[in-house]
Nucleic acid binder design. Structure first.
Lengths: 245, 245
DNA sequence: CGCTATCTTGATATGAATCAATAGCTGTGG
DNA sequence: CCACAGCTATTGATTCATATCAAGATAGCG
């Protein structure tokens, strides 16, 4: 019954009713495939869709006038894309697939209906949306007050923490299909400097990186360097209203 | 009837029903005063409250191990504080008053009840929450890919845009009760460097700053420097469910 | 098998941090 | 009402992290 990866993710947080599950599953019809590099939508363009990631790696990015890019967020299986721009009728960032990705798209109005039918899901979605704020706060802290190596370590750990929801908590080998250029645009450095930092981190036995695989060899040290605070905790359901059906 | 600054803010976006207004107004009882510098709560501590800012200036911040500080967000009249940590049972950042502030505090469960009674408000609150994500995306872009002067310009413009919701769109003189040290901790620089940049910006006729007043003298130039994208737009109500009572 | 993206390395330049010192301002207590 | 304490702001000299410029080396891919 639960073949929806989004439902699976929600069930890690909360015990959904059959009716809630059925209505969420309704959103996951006809997955669409996106090729690596392909855009879901572009910054500034009209956008009315929300996507559930079935599978794959995606990212949200924004360009500056000089052509510099800032990568804002990565998205993995079971996550929602498009909610960040939900307050506006246009996309505030460009979203594209990194690796080939499978997505289920639905119009925003479906989310409105879901909120109306299931008040408890509206609080759940609100909580999950606020987790994105926390992630961004953590990124901002890293960007503003730590050096390049710490920012890279932070990025790796943040990605690992989110990928492990899917792979289990022990996996140290992660599929990370990012180029050094992508890493640079995510942490606000140049690709050249990222190259030197990665080499340094490898020689220090912190990580191993080959092709699209990243291995975290000394995670305690990485956590120390990044001053990483784990966000892997149960979410607080105490304030949620009861499920209505 | 509408003496609630929070309702006033919401009414700028959406035409609330009397019942919605009444239930929101219920949240704004007995404002509490916080002195400059006083903490609402501290990172890591148990926290179950949401606050509506009646009046004043507040900020959210986080400390690093070496004592460095990153300021994450400022809060103004009519805004909600505490939502960012709503997914956890503890505060993920420290929040304190910058200037003397008046707040109305209420437990999270009240928000859950409100969502259950008024589905349309849950979509509205969700949208407003996602605006915070957009703000953070913009900050991240500035931090990762622009230099100190652009980051300062961006901060000033972002503050101005949000203060002008209260003061009207033409005001160029803003009350900004931040020290150079605060500015530095907000944009990820040292106070010394901020001092030099402010002097430079003053001599270029971009701003004037005296004590707690900031004047934006050449806003077009500031926008160019910061590559500032205005976020002042009506929010998209198209996907909201109808009001139920 | 060559093309193009990716990665690597060295030399130099620069924005911002650090170190150090001083001056101004604000509130407080005697 | 003055003097002192403690933030806040200012300025100069030096250092450091990271960017920029330049050139190859690899490696996946059609």
């Amino acid at each position: 019954m639960v073949d929806s990866c989004f439902v699976k993710r929600l069930l890690q947080h909360i015990d959904l009713t059959a009716s809630e599950i059925a209505d969420i599953a309704e959103l996951e019809r006809e997955p669409v495939t996106f090729a690596p590099g392909q855009k879901l939508w572009e910054e500034g363009h009209k956008a009315d869709y929300i996507c559930i990631v079935q599978d794959g790696w995606l990212m949200s990015e924004t360009l500056l006038e000089g052509g510099e890019r800032q990568i804002l967020r990565f998205y993995f299986s079971g996550e929602l894309i498009g909610t960040a721009s939900i307050a506006y009728d246009h996309a505030t960032t460009t979203v594209r697939a990194v690796d080939e990705a499978q997505l289920c798209m639905f119009p925003r109005a479906r989310l409105g209906e879901l909120f109306a039918r299931h008040p408890r899901l509206s609080t759940l979605f609100y909580s999950l949306g606020m987790l994105e704020v926390i992630d961004l706060n953590d990124r901002l802290r890293a960007m503003g007050r730590t050096d390049g190596k710490a920012r890279l370590a932070h990025l790796f750990l943040a990605i690992a923490e989110r990928l492990r929801v899917l792979t289990g908590p022990e996996s140290t080998k992660l599929h990370v299909p990012l180029t050094q250029n992508d890493l640079a645009d995510a942490v606000g450095l140049t690709a050249i400097h990222v190259n030197r930092l990665l080499k340094e981190m490898s020689s220090e036995g912190l990580i191993r990186r080959h092709r699209r695989e990243l291995e975290l060899l000394d995670e305690p040290a990485l956590r120390r360097i990044a001053q990483f605070r784990s966000r892997r905790q149960n979410i607080d359901l105490g304030w949620f209203p009861p499920a209505q059906n």
